[in-house]
């Protein structure tokens, strides 16, 4: 294995991690502040991707699509919060899981009804087409570098928002004591809607930027949702910092595992079998990592202090 392949795979791992961070940041924020398990988070990711693809097809501009995806996902999130989620805060987690699972079905069938069963087309904007040279003879797609940059910006933005603004202060206060912040006269209902819309917008953004790399289709959110849950469990539920570290860990483990495990196994068996077994083992690797981390730190890497 050459240095350039290793570097390229590391970048791939970081890029996957950054994408997972966008998903899990919203998920963990919503859980941290409202104590809500939102299975429909993957549907908001799908809403973002479809909004981006539809607007890009209509106007020819990916950038307008990106704006639309943020707006649509945030709006969908806010509406869902007002209509459904609001009634779930006082219920136990099982009710929340049931209700948000129903939302997945509604979103999926609604999207199929609007756009049909065939995947939509969404291309990379001309500005970000092509690849740049890496040290060695490898190249790396500009678009994936841009995803890493977007993820870094969002991480920085969230850090500033939560650490340095009044809204952020209220979010932190909401995380540590929901009843008290309400009693102190903060409009907790508006805060909840805002946080939910923010989390949804992040999921929508993730969907939109992944759209040009993948197939924009109904049900695209669920596989990512599972990984996002792995991420927030590893990171400590409710912690944005944990989500960032967990996402990068999962992204890099998954990518390098897919590369290294089959190669390792070729030392013992023929390449065909090594590919098959190594591939299967690699897809289990992140769950193994999760199990190991949880056995050492049962509440994740960065559990919030209060919980």
């Amino acid at each position: 294995m050459t240095i350039s392949l290793a570097l390229e795979q590391l970048l791939n791992g970081i890029q996957l991690g950054v994408m997972l961070f966008l998903m899990s940041a919203g998920l963990t924020l919503i859980f941290g502040v409202m104590g809500l398990i939102n299975l429909a988070h993957g549907s908001l990711y799908m809403v973002g991707a479809f909004a981006c693809a539809a607007v890009a097809a209509l106007t020819g501009s990916f950038w307008l699509g990106l704006v639309a995806s943020l707006a649509c996902a945030a709006a969908a999130g806010a509406i869902v919060e007002l209509l459904v989620i609001r009634r779930l805060y006082d219920r136990d987690h099982l009710d929340q899981v049931l209700a948000t699972f129903a939302l997945i079905l509604i979103f999926s069938e609604g999207t199929r009804w609007l756009f049909g069963s065939f995947p939509l087309y969404l291309d990379i904007p001309p500005l970000l087409q092509g690849a740049v040279a890496l040290p060695g003879d490898a190249t790396y797609p500009v678009y994936r570098l841009a995803i890493i940059a977007v993820g870094a910006l969002v991480a920085l933005g969230l850090y500033l928002l939560i650490g340095k603004t009044r809204l952020g202060m209220r979010i932190r206060a909401g995380e540590s004591d929901r009843e008290m912040i309400g009693a102190l006269g903060v409009d907790i209902r508006t805060l909840y809607t805002l946080v939910f819309a923010l989390g949804s917008a992040l999921a929508g953004l993730a969907g939109a930027i992944v759209g040009p790399l993948q197939s924009v289709q109904v049900g695209m959110g669920e596989p990512v949702l599972i990984l996002a849950f792995v991420v927030i469990v590893i990171g400590g539920i409710g912690s944005i910092k944990g989500a960032l570290i967990g996402a990068l860990l999962v992204g890099i483990t998954d990518t390098l595992g897919r590369l290294l495990l089959p190669q390792l196994l070729t030392l013992f068996m023929d390449p065909s079998q090594a590919g098959m077994i190594g591939g299967a083992a690699a897809s289990m690797l992140i769950y193994v990592v999760m199990a190991v981390i949880l056995s050492v730190k049962p509440r994740g890497l960065f559990p919030p202090a209060h919980a």
Binding site: M1, T2, S4, L5, E8, Q9, N12, Q15, L16, A138, R144, V210, L213, Q214, S215, M220, P223, V224, T255, L256, R258, L259, P262, P271, S272, G275, M276, G278, G279, A280, S283
Partner: peptide, 23 residues
């Protein structure tokens, strides 16, 4: 054969495999 790789069913990101192909 330069390589023989099995991926997960439903996998959506192939960056790792594409890098292997190049290498």
């Amino acid at each position: 054969l330069a390589g023989e790789v099995y991926t997960k069913v439903g996998q959506t990101d192939y960056a790792a495999e594409i890098a292997q192909m190049r290498a």
